[in-house]
Design a protein around this nucleic acid. Structure first.
Lengths: 129, 129
DNA sequence: TTTATACTTTCCCCTTAGGTCAAAGTTTAT
DNA sequence: ATAAACTTTGACCTAAGGGGAAAGTATAAA
């Protein structure tokens, strides 16, 4: 099938699918008559796989790693679990950081009257030496 | 003062300070003899202000907006509060998203034996149709 | 069969917020 | 006078594609 159909089936944009071909993440055969990319059913499965992993916040390089484990019949689930646990750690760090930010910002917002006067604790906090 | 000193005083890298000059976020005078940028005390205060706001996850464009409010004697604190509340909303959305991801990933990880066998619920989830 | 429409290709520039490196000019210290 | 430290602009790099142009290809309608 052509890229348009593969794109629809995998629920990715054509641009994305073409990008994945360019970086050799999911690389279909390419006709030497027309130059059109020819996607197989298996290619579509891989595209879907990557789409899912990307939604789980895995980077392209991590997707590449997961994909090679996915394709490897001799893989151990240990490897996959390790990568996943690392990703969870990463998310935890990000969560902590964002929660801290949120607390500070909401503290500032709570102390700002939000009226038509220029006095503003938020700006004061930002201009603190 | 030159950019090096302004950079140290504001706790930003020279590159960052130069970048802010280029995008006219904090734009110092520039000597027409040597071409060196000449930072004033006030410029440094603005740099620090931006540095703080950036740490609070405000984008450069949002910093530009906050900075113009900061410089505007006739501002109303309402405007600043509005921007801040929007930023809090944004952070809340991101938090929700990340928490969802974390839950799904940790569910998958908990169900993965993490042994030397190829069977892996994580990969199974990613390859689900 | 011709034409119109839809699809595909490669190529180039754009995004955030700077980082890295190079060549050349300037200032300061020895 | 010269070396070291500082500054300038410029070009290219990051992640993960998006947007659009120009040109080739396929398919459907007239």
């Amino acid at each position: 099938m052509n890229i348009g159909k593969a794109s629809k089936l995998s629920d990715l944009t054509v641009k994305t699918v073409r990008y994945y071909a360019n970086i050799e993440l999911v690389k279909p055969k390419q006709s030497n008559f027309t130059g059109y990319r020819e996607y197989s059913e298996e290619d579509v499965l891989k595209l879907k796989f990557v789409g899912k992993a990307r939604k789980f916040n895995f980077s392209i390089e991590e997707c590449r790693e997961l994909l090679s484990l996915y394709e490897n019949e001799n893989r151990s689930s240990k490897e996959v679990k390790k990568i996943t646990l690392e990703k969870i750690c990463e998310i935890d760090k990000k969560l902590k950081e964002l929660k801290g930010l949120r607390n500070e910002l909401s503290y500032l917002a709570n102390n700002c009257h939000g009226d038509d006067k220029p006095n503003c604790p938020i700006l004061d906090a930002f201009s603190q030496k």
